[in-house]
Computed example of a mutant assay.
Amino acid sequence: MRSGDAEVTRIFKEKVSTRAARRPELEAAVQLAGEIRSSGVRVTLVVHEHKRLGRGIELALLAEELKASDVGLEFLTGELQGSHGPSGIVFTVLAAMSGMEREYIPDRTLEGHESARKRGKTIGGAGVSDGNMLSMALHLREQTMSLRDIAKRLVITTGKKKGRHPSPATVMRMLREHDEQTATAAPESTA
């Protein structure tokens, strides 16, 4: 039983990633919600937060399925916390937010790595950069290219990752270390 006048019919628990191709518990919850709604009973699917429903096109398809079945949504936490009727705009917003979230994950990962390094934590495996890679990265940075674009143009020449591109985090670290060494080596000017 939840607070208010609603009764929880069944709880579905799923601990797989929202990137997984099949999510049996979510599929079963949506199917049951549709069946109950078809009998004339108002149904609201309650989810911890919108991110647990899925991402990108899968989320857009799920939102359309719930809307077509006239099933409402309620989020316990997050930006969309609260109850949302099936005719509301939240179903459109879900797909847009989900797509945006995927775009920001790499940026948040880079920020997390940077924060860990500042705390003295070691991130990543063996070094993959060399002098030639650094020279090319510096040249590309002068052209105001993003870290992702620079990484796409560089190729690792040694080790187990030979022939692959370095990650944007590796490029960021390589350029940051170069900048720090250059700043340390430069003579201090006096005024």
Rank of each mutant, 00 (worst) to 15 (best):
E27T: 15
V90G: 06
G124P: 08
L73C: 07
V46H: 07
S39A: 12
L53K: 03
I105P: 02
V47D: 07
M145E: 08
E27V: 12
I89Q: 14
G131I: 09
L147E: 04
T77R: 12
V30Y: 04
R119F: 13
G125C: 06
S69Q: 15
V71N: 01
M97N: 08
G131R: 14
E64D: 13
V47Y: 00
A63G: 05
R102P: 08
R55E: 14
G99T: 05
R52L: 06
V43E: 04
I105V: 12
H50S: 11
R108C: 03
E64K: 13
G127E: 07
L110K: 06
A68G: 05
G34F: 03
I89C: 12
S83G: 11
G56H: 06
V71P: 01
A137Q: 04
G85W: 01
Q143I: 04
E64P: 00
R52I: 05
L76W: 02
K121D: 09
V43H: 03
D107H: 11
E79N: 03
G82C: 07
V43N: 06
S98Y: 00
L61C: 11
A33W: 01
I123E: 03
G56V: 08
G72R: 02
I36R: 13
L53V: 11
M100V: 10
S98C: 07
E35Y: 00
V30G: 11
V90I: 14
A29Q: 05
T92A: 14
H84K: 09
A33P: 06
I123V: 15
D149L: 09
R117D: 05
